[in-house]
Amino acid sequence: MIHGLVLTHGAVGAELLRVVTMILGPEPSLSAASNAGLSINDLTALVATEVKTASTENSLGTLVFIDDVAGSCATAARLASVAAGPMRIVSGVNLAMLLDFTTWRESLDLDDLARRLVEKGRSAIGVVPLGDEES
């Protein structure tokens, strides 16, 4: 199983996981972390520890979801990727991505899963038609 880490500003990640749990029930090997109050070194160490721990527990790697492609979470995840273990980073995390992640993480490898989730996340973004508009 591929491990998931949702690494975000503030409590965004924790709240997203709370909603995932509300919809699907408790999910194993899926956690959230925040950059709040952490230096870039401590944030990098947090990611590295999570990825290493997952890899020693027979995970097929870790998918790190981040909210912003160019913030401290992105920098920390990229810096951690050097020595931490198998991982991929996907930015722009949203609920659709996380729900799809739980469906496919046992049947796809890291690269294919990352690609799939980017498409899934994009497909969930759009202008939603109003009640009397054609979709």
Partner: peptide, 10 residues
């Protein structure tokens, strides 16, 4: 800033 280039800066 120990995070250097990050959201508050960029």
């Amino acid at each position: 800033d120990d995070r250097l280039i990050h959201g508050q800066v960029s």
